[in-house]
Write a protein that binds this DNA or RNA. Structure first.
Lengths: 175, 175
DNA sequence: TATTGTTATACTCTATAACTATA
DNA sequence: TATAGTTATAGAGTATAACAATA
């Protein structure tokens, strides 16, 4: 098989997505599994590991107006999100403050310490992501990331059941 | 639309794998989630759903010499594999026959009915895979599949913990 | 002694239901 | 009445441990 050159020339795309039906998912699963394994190592020490990182990162970079929006973005159930946030609050990385617009809701904001910690772990996460893609020919990693983003967007767009995030994703909410 | 060209021009791969650290995994997760959702629909009616399909497909196309090899290929624990196979046996899609080389082991072989059923579902799986990639520019889907395969291989290669399959994967075992 | 496969058990993760407080 | 968040509970999925048969 042409393992070395990512056989861009032999493509028939729509007719032959992969060697066998289901292979696409097999590869996706393998890549995600490997990614998560490295991710776990990179965020070791952070409460709730990967999930903790994702919550903290979303809070800092996206400022979701409430827990529901946060959970929807990460595809995390609200009941799960509660104890994730509990752990981050206990570690003094984030705080629950009353949402300005709705007294039922809480807005999650990072503490200064939380922002510092996030920065530290982001360096490590960015490092392993780069390392992971580095085994690819330089142009390929950019192409891959780009296509993946496109695919992810299309998928979320066309399947409501898979799509608890709707149109709000990858928008930065107002502060 | 800013969504169509996910900044392909601004990418410097190793330095900026994605907009934010962790984004790569977020997109991977979304794509896999969407993929699995469609997969589930496609194999509806097959015992054990996706897992059942994967086992049946591996048995037919790869002829693993025993359950351990089969489980390793699919990254399924042997204790889980037991009941997956139980279900397929009960549906008369596969049989457990004594492995010729080792009386401890069982070789899983598909019945004629099993092969027919697999063919039917493979059509459906191939269809949704194509459909999923079809929303991409034609060249992109081939590139994506190709890079994904490459990535998956590299990842399995360099991390033993993620890699219960070792070198045997995507080889066809002897019959 | 190590390995294959099975079974039973325990654990983790996630979702469901019920509740309080707001809207 | 519906929604945000919390809590407790139940369920699915997975891994761990112990076992029998064989290498």
């Amino acid at each position: 098989m042409t393992t070395s050159d990512t056989n861009r020339t032999t493509t028939q795309a729509a007719t032959a997505p992969a060697a066998l039906p289901g292979d696409l998912g097999w590869h996706l699963g393998m890549v995600l599994r490997g990614y998560q394994s490295k991710f776990e190592d990179a965020v070791e020490g952070l409460p709730e590991g990967i999930r903790g990182f994702q919550v903290l990162s979303s809070v800092v970079h996206l400022s979701p107006p409430n827990q529901q929006a946060l959970g929807a973005h990460l595809a995390i159930d609200r009941t799960v999100l509660t104890y994730l946030i509990d752990a981050l609050v206990e570690a003094e990385l984030v705080e629950r403050i009353p949402a300005p617009t709705d007294r039922r809701a809480r807005k999650i904001v990072a503490t200064t310490h939380g922002r510092d910690v996030l920065k530290k772990y982001e360096t490590r996460v960015a490092a392993f992501e780069s390392e992971m893609l580095f085994c690819l020919p330089a142009e390929d990693s950019a192409v891959f990331v780009s296509i993946l983003g496109r695919l992810s967007m299309d998928i979320r767009g066309d399947d409501p059941s898979t799509n608890p995030c709707a149109a709000m994703d990858h928008l930065r909410w107002e502060r």
